[in-house]
Amino acid sequence: MKQIHRMIDEIRKWMPFTPSSKVVCLGVTYDCNEEAAREEFLEDFRSRVLLTYRSGLEPPLQLAAGGTTASDSGWGCMLRVTQMMLAQCFVSLTLGRDWRFREEDLKEGSTYLRVASCFLDTPEASFSLHRLVEMGQRILGKEPSSWFGPTSAAQAVGHLFEASKVAGPDFLKTVGCAVFVDGPIYKASVMEHFDNGCTSVILFVCRRLGLESCNLDEYQQGLDSCFRLPEFQGLASGNSSSSAHFFVATHGEESLLFLDPHVTHPALQKPADVIASGGLRAERPLRLPWTSLNPSICVAFLVRSKSEFSSLCDRLCEGPREQVFEVLERQPTYNGSFDDLLEADDLVVVN
């Protein structure tokens, strides 16, 4: 059955698709029945940062069994999706939600290139594949070429954040990152970042919304409504059989629209490579029915003050969203190990 689902998902990627219904993209609504609104949405979508598999990684990654690999093709899709979600947060922070890609964004020293440089394929880049893999190995025991789920990828980012604030670009120095791996959002964990001088905090909220498939009867309406929130920065998940995707929009009541990392391009080792590529941009949105959404998810939010965070918590706890999210004042003490929490992460979506 998984083979059939995988075949259907791959065929759907190549089928012509024109948005023709209401589209909600990262807090902005477009009526794509109208041509002008459809073009506005497509310009918005094409301005999102697309990060894909890469070949020619230098230095190559050392494998635990010996040897090396110079590509993440076939196993790095969730790491690329998490990079895209983090890049979206950085774009919102530095360029704003109304920003749209222009040719001048490829000029040397531009804010766009500063954001893109965080994800270059070198060990020096703040959130490169090299650094994410290294952190995954250190804190989670995941060897290079191991598949990451949305929770483990989010954890790797969270652990990299403090070091990146010291050595990374200036805009990171007052940004915090709170990763919630077991479902609830703990207010104290976010407020602590603001108390320590952060002016913005990124939230990665990881959930499992079903066993072998997403429980849409219980969770679809609440998850769908997140796309309307101005703090929402995207959804890291995948399809029902194999692949990780970065979801940024909904199309009517039937589908989600995503960026796909499953194309291999040469490694980006310097900003000039981004310039030569013409920008990290997707040509067109791809569509996935809600019925094919994987139950393992990570939702990203960006808040810029204590009051904005408190307001977000209130909205996550009302209406259908309260089926998806739980907000507690602080994290309770667990008897189980952290490793037990991660077992729910890496099971349904596999490359």
Results as ranks from 00 to 15, higher is better:
residue 233 Q to M: 15
residue 288 L to T: 03
residue 266 P to S: 00
residue 169 P to K: 02
residue 184 P to N: 00
residue 133 V to F: 08
residue 47 S to G: 05
residue 299 V to L: 13
residue 30 Y to K: 00
residue 25 C to V: 00
residue 35 E to A: 12
residue 281 R to G: 06
residue 192 E to C: 01
residue 14 W to G: 12
residue 213 S to Q: 10
residue 165 K to Q: 15
residue 310 S to T: 15
residue 196 N to M: 08
residue 220 Q to T: 02
residue 83 Q to T: 10
residue 8 I to A: 14
residue 170 D to Y: 03
residue 308 E to M: 13
residue 10 E to S: 13
residue 197 G to S: 00
residue 281 R to P: 05
residue 196 N to C: 09
residue 31 D to I: 00
residue 209 L to V: 06
residue 5 H to I: 06
residue 203 L to T: 04
residue 249 A to I: 06
residue 246 F to N: 02
residue 35 E to W: 03
residue 320 P to Q: 09
residue 249 A to Q: 04
residue 187 K to P: 01
residue 169 P to H: 01
residue 175 V to L: 09
residue 251 H to I: 00
residue 205 V to E: 06
residue 308 E to N: 12
residue 210 G to T: 06
residue 13 K to T: 09
residue 104 E to I: 08
residue 251 H to G: 05
residue 280 L to R: 07
residue 104 E to D: 14
residue 41 F to M: 07
residue 267 A to I: 00
residue 111 T to C: 05
residue 236 A to Y: 11
residue 200 S to Q: 08
residue 267 A to V: 01
residue 348 V to E: 13
residue 332 P to Y: 13
residue 106 L to W: 04
residue 83 Q to R: 08
residue 21 S to D: 13
residue 91 V to W: 07
residue 73 S to C: 06
residue 329 E to N: 10
residue 259 L to A: 02
residue 176 G to Q: 01
residue 291 T to I: 04
residue 305 S to D: 14
residue 115 V to R: 04
residue 4 I to L: 12
residue 1 M to Q: 06
residue 260 D to G: 02
residue 326 E to V: 14
